[in-house]
Design a protein around this nucleic acid. Structure first.
Length: 108
DNA sequence: ATTATGACTTATT
DNA sequence: GAATAAGCCATAA
């Protein structure tokens, strides 16, 4: 966390606003930023200098899968993220979220 | 300025 | 539904 870019800062701010029991997608986060840098959002979270402050585990892909966690794109780290979200009250369907639209947090 | 990369997305096969 | 390809944007080197 030496010098996050303005873009990343916005991402962190939005992600921080996600309440418990809800989630958001990379796309949904990029939308209020007026951009289509979905990947850039993911990269910002991958950096995640605000680790405990930013609930990066509440951010998943629009596909319903949870892109990655702990710097890993697949493996038990993903399962950990899944279990963590499950604990927050998110319903899962195998390796994907049951219904993303239902727990999708809307930024205002 | 240019190139390469990615925790993405959508479309196509 | 899974695998592949192409597109798009921001960052780091």
């Amino acid at each position: 966390m030496s010098k996050p870019t303005a873009f990343a800062n916005k991402v962190y701010k939005l992600t921080k606003q996600i309440p418990k029991g809800k989630i958001s997608t990379y796309k949904a986060i990029a939308e209020p930023l007026n951009t289509k840098a979905y990947q850039a959002v993911g990269q910002a979270l991958r950096n995640n200098p605000y680790a405990p402050i930013v609930p990066c585990h509440r951010v998943i892909s629009s596909n319903g899968t949870m892109g990655g966690f702990n710097g890993k794109t697949s493996g038990k780290e993903i399962q950990t993220k899944k279990q963590l979200l499950k604990k927050e009250g998110i319903s899962f369907k195998g390796n994907k979220v049951y219904n993303p639209s239902k727990v999708l947090h809307i930024f205002k």
